[in-house]
Design a protein around this nucleic acid. Structure first.
Length: 190
DNA sequence: TCCGTCAATGTGTACG
DNA sequence: CGTACACATTGACGGA
């Protein structure tokens, strides 16, 4: 797996891309947390005296593609791997590190959005089922007791469940109708 | 001009 | 205590 990844990377790197014109900015080692009061912007590039702090740099298309390929194989890098990849891509190791951190965050965000969508759909399904069951219950309540399918059955006034009968206590876990399916236990539910 | 994206920064925390 | 990471946030930039 790693090998395939390396191959892809070296293939992609075979067509050398120009180092980005904008990525020569020297990255700062992380400022000491206490060094900034009010919290903002240390931004000092030791070698450049341009006053405007934190110019936006963008990775080249190739660099991003390489990082993406590597990320698909491996979402965390060892320090050695980070170093090597940075060298390959003509970036600072810190840039590679930051890219991977941000990429993991993006991945997680996307996953959360998908989970949210899934839960929404589950809610809709359950909501519909609940409505149907309520309706069914009303209909059953409207029937005369003699018309209940099995003798000795009664409906719990609070929860609306059918109680009594021979199998009530013995086998509570076997639902008789499809209504009791738990959508969260489906195999599709990752 | 507003808004989304993304590289970069700051902070908190877990771990060895 | 140092390191690595997650997470929140900032700010530059580009497109509508």
């Amino acid at each position: 797996m790693e090998d395939a990844c390396e191959t892809q990377l070296s293939l992609a790197l075979a067509t050398p891309s120009r180092p980005s014109a904008h990525c020569h900015r020297r990255l700062q080692p992380r400022a000491s947390p206490k060094s900034l009061e009010g919290g903002r912007r240390p931004v000092i590039c030791d070698e450049e005296e341009d006053s405007d702090a934190r110019k936006k740099i963008r990775l080249t298309r190739e660099q991003s593609a390489m990082l993406e390929i590597r990320f698909r194989c491996q979402s965390n890098l060892t320090p050695k791997q980070k170093q090597a990849l940075a060298k390959q891509l003509n970036l600072q190791p810190r840039q590679v590190e930051v890219w991977f951190q941000n990429r993991r965050a993006r991945k997680k965000l996307k996953q959360t959005e998908m989970d949210c969508e899934f839960l929404k759909r589950c809610y809709e399904v359950l909501s519909k089922e609940n409505q149907m069951l309520q309706k069914e219950l009303q209909e059953m309540k409207a029937l005369k007791p003699t018309q209940f399918p099995a003798a000795g059955l009664s409906i719990c006034p609070t929860c609306g469940k059918i109680a009594g009968g021979d199998d009530d206590a013995a086998a509570p876990a076997t639902p008789k109708t499809d209504h009791f399916r738990n959508p969260f236990s489906h195999s599709e539910a990752r």
